[in-house]
Nucleic acid binder design. Structure first.
Length: 324
DNA sequence: GCGACAG
DNA sequence: ATCTTGTCGC
């Protein structure tokens, strides 16, 4: 079996090409661009990216809301964008392109990269094995911090009773943006490098704890599951925020957990921890929900986060602040 | 009015 | 996640 790797599409390059293909006198919408990328849910990401300095030199004034409302260009105002559109021959009435249909470009030729990633996630999900965890003596915890466009991943080796044994950090370029449900493509390159470095050092972990979800994911392919399948090793996901599914978290006591249900299936647990935090625990790979819950409860006695993950967070953050 | 989407 | 001052809530 070859070295575990992940291929990441160049979304910024695709977006630049899409923007540059919109001729003067025409407009498109955030939604249409998101669909061209292969996922309408990426529209908020499109809006954010177009207002960032990365899109500085692009004709972002040609992207409007689905209502026709003119957007705001990087470093500019809505009025300035409307003036640019008017100069290009677009009729703008009360800050809205009117009628939108007359100017609308929507039929972008793309390979829909996000749709391809969804298919890959479905294939990953098919390979997930839900089974009891092996006996856990050592735990590997993974987290990543960012500095500019560089990811700094930390691997912390801990004993089952929460003693820190070893730790290391690795750096990797962050090529993929954060888009909900595609976290793997942003963080896995750094995680894979960190796990490889730990293996190189001869550190053995019976289970990997990942800062993110396992099967608690629309396509059952959160970053913990994705990592687990690529490495074929037991993983457990622990997220600090809610991604999808429903859980009744009313009146939970510390240490208590409730099922998270998605499409009528229990895919994880919402767990109350110290300081009244709610964690979302789910099996990644070669783990089951009971085992994941038991492990995280044991590592979370008197703390808000599982101790090894807390360390991984601190180690990666510190390394990201320090000069490379 | 709906929904509120990990890092 | 990261950028960042004072400040609202348990």
């Amino acid at each position: 079996m070859g070295k575990a790797e992940i291929e990441v599409p160049d979304l910024p390059r695709t977006l630049r090409a899409l923007l540059l293909s919109i001729p003067a006198g025409r407009v498109t919408t955030y939604r249409a661009l998101a669909e061209a990328l292969g996922d309408p849910g990426a529209a908020p990401f499109i809006a954010q990216w177009l207002s960032s300095s990365e899109a500085e030199d692009l004709p972002v004034h040609r992207v409007v809301h689905a209502s026709g409302a003119v957007g705001r260009a990087w470093g500019g105002t809505q009025d300035e964008a409307a003036a640019k559109l008017a100069r290009e021959g677009v009729r703008v009435v009360g800050s809205r392109v009117d009628p939108l249909a007359r100017y609308f470009v929507w039929d972008f030729p793309t390979d829909r990269p996000l749709a391809r990633l969804q298919e890959e996630q479905a294939r990953i999900a098919d390979q997930v094995i839900l089974a009891p965890l092996p006996e856990v003596e050592t735990i590997g915890a993974l987290d990543v911090a960012y500095r500019d466009s560089e990811a700094v991943a930390a691997f912390v080796l801990a004993s089952a009773d929460g003693e820190l044994i070893e730790h290391l950090t690795v750096r990797a370029p962050a090529l993929f943006p954060y888009i909900p449900t595609y976290l793997s493509y942003r963080e896995l390159p750094a995680y894979l490098a960190a796990v490889a470095a730990a293996a190189e050092a001869g550190w053995e972990a019976d289970v990997l704890l990942v800062d993110g979800n396992g099967i608690l994911h629309p396509r059952r392919a959160g970053v913990a599951s994705h990592l687990g399948v690529l490495l074929d090793r037991p993983t457990v996901g622990v997220a600090k925020g809610h991604l999808c599914g429903h859980a009744n978290t009313e009146g939970m006591a510390i240490g208590e957990w409730r099922p998270v249900v998605l499409d009528e299936e229990t895919v994880g647990a919402a767990m109350r921890t110290d300081r009244n935090r709610t964690l979302f625990v789910s099996p990644g790979h070669r783990a089951d929900l009971d085992g994941a819950i038991g492990l995280i409860q044991a590592l979370t006695a008197g703390t808000a986060l599982p101790v090894p993950l807390q360390w991984a967070h601190e180690v990666s953050a510190e390394a990201a602040h320090a000069p490379s």
